[in-house]
């Protein structure tokens, strides 16, 4: 169990800590990691992949020293190893052009503005991970308590 990783990226450690804390209720089912830069995140997902684990979701800030969040998510989007990985942009500072790029070129699945609502973030994360699990064919019964009901039920109506 705990083969699916959630990776949070934010250069501000206090913010990173808050994101991870908001997702703590998922800790029994997913491995939740934090990195403080895009570069660190890329080397981490490499490591995760080489261990044979999966990257289910990346939640990234946008404005960071070095590679920006949108660039990071774009890199992940274009990496065939992570083609199913869900991506959330969590930022207070992306402008219109960044946002367009994030959607068109990085294929983000959700956009959150800072400050974010913890419950909303958690629900979105659950829903995206449910989609991830169903899409990748991982046995969903092991994740039952944290799955998004609506997504799961709709899937099972069509596929059971």
């Amino acid at each position: 169990m705990k083969n699916i990783n959630i990776i949070c990226v934010d250069d501000q450690s206090e913010v990173l800590d808050s994101v991870i804390r908001d997702l703590r209720s998922l800790e029994d089912f997913f491995r939740i990691e934090g990195t403080e830069s895009s570069e660190d995140c890329l080397s981490l997902i490499d490591e995760i992949d080489s261990r044979g684990e999966q990257v289910g979701l990346v939640i990234s800030d946008h404005v960071m020293p070095g590679t920006s969040g949108v660039e990071l998510l774009k890199t992940i989007f274009n990496d065939s190893r992570f083609s199913n990985t869900k991506k959330i942009l969590l930022t207070g500072q992306a402008n219109h052009a960044d946002t367009i790029k994030a959607i068109n070129e990085a294929g983000i699945h959700s956009y959150f503005e800072k400050p974010w609502n913890a419950e909303e973030l958690l629900n979105t994360v659950k829903s995206l991970l449910t989609q991830y699990i169903l899409k990748t064919g991982i046995d969903h019964t092991e994740y039952m308590p944290v799955l998004d009901q609506a997504v799961l039920l709709e899937y099972l109506r069509k596929n059971a």
Binding site: A150, L152, E154, L156, N159, A160
Partner: peptide, 15 residues
Amino acid sequence: MSNTATAAMMLAILA
């Protein structure tokens, strides 16, 4: 239909 698909559909209606 399968029991699972039926239950999934009805629970989705009920939720």
